[in-house]
Amino acid sequence: MGKFNIKINGREMEAEEGNTILDVAKANGIYIPTLCHHPQLSVQGACRICMVEVKGLPKPVTSCTTPIAKDMDIQTDTPVVIKQRETVLELLLSDHPLECPTCDAGGQCKLQDLTHDYKIKGNRFEGEKRKVPVEEVNPFIRRDYQRCIQCSRCIRVCDEVRGIGAIQYAKRGFYQKVSTCADKVLDCIFCGSCVQQCPVGALTEKPSKFKYRPWETKQVETTCGYCGVGCSLTLHTKNNEIVKVTSRDDTLNKGHLCVKGRYGYEFVKSDKRLTTPLIRKDGKLTPASWKEALSYTAKRFKEIKEKHGPDSLGGFSSAKCTNEENYLFQKFVRVNFETNNLDHCARL
């Protein structure tokens, strides 16, 4: 691949053949707005928001689709491209319900951000808006295609990255919408990658509805507690409750999760959680204090060890617990029980 020099906004920089204008700009910290683009997906050029001007070309071009070439002289923020972006936004907004106060994406919506950035006031294209009923017949994903800006990122991620192909465009023109085969209920693996891709509030998490506003949440980076792949999770919490799970693109799972990793967190706040030690009294498990539970447990273990010897005791640790917990557990058993009767569910 050849390397050559180009210019963006008057700044000289090196670029490599095979990249697009957008790739080179991004790599050099130059911001060009995008809606339909995502580095993991095929290039679409659908939204037209990433237009830039290239010296010598008669019209602005989409930076996400245009290959970089030697000696290109690119301007990313000329009055012409700004006007074009404003027009694109006005067109999108002319068919977008402005229900931002109740939309889950409010505060993390790219359309909202760009409308703000480009100071859009009023709309020259006001008129009839599409009427598409909300679809939420499945347990996980709320699909409100009236809010859809037809960037097709959900379709591409489902097909190209997840290999499912559960959704596709149906109809054409004004009536075009993302749809399942024959408009049936969404029947897929519910991995939620489409929701994470959606730049607006067309796809949102049903279990999270009305639970939080994005700016109210704290984010904690952690590792999934289900299978052995070890996907990275971002837990979004509000008032000591997990309200949503996402994952970052720069992780081993590249931002993708399975249905359990993304939606399987509700058990954490289940009202069936154990909240106090229990001791069996008269055949029934009865609430007890930690002090009582710990001293009774130690006493009984010591008695059994005394009576039947160390090898009458044993411990099962857990493949669900952390390394630190497992380390301490085996140390506990070996030191206090004085036996190697120690195992966990690796075989099960």
Binding site: R300, F301, I304, K305, H308, D311, S312, L313, G314, G315, F316, S317, S318, A319, K320, C321, E325, F329, F332, V333, F337, N341, H344, C345
Partner: peptide
Amino acid sequence: GGIKGLYIMGE
């Protein structure tokens, strides 16, 4: 001579 007392964590 079998196991009489058992401590199970998370299983």
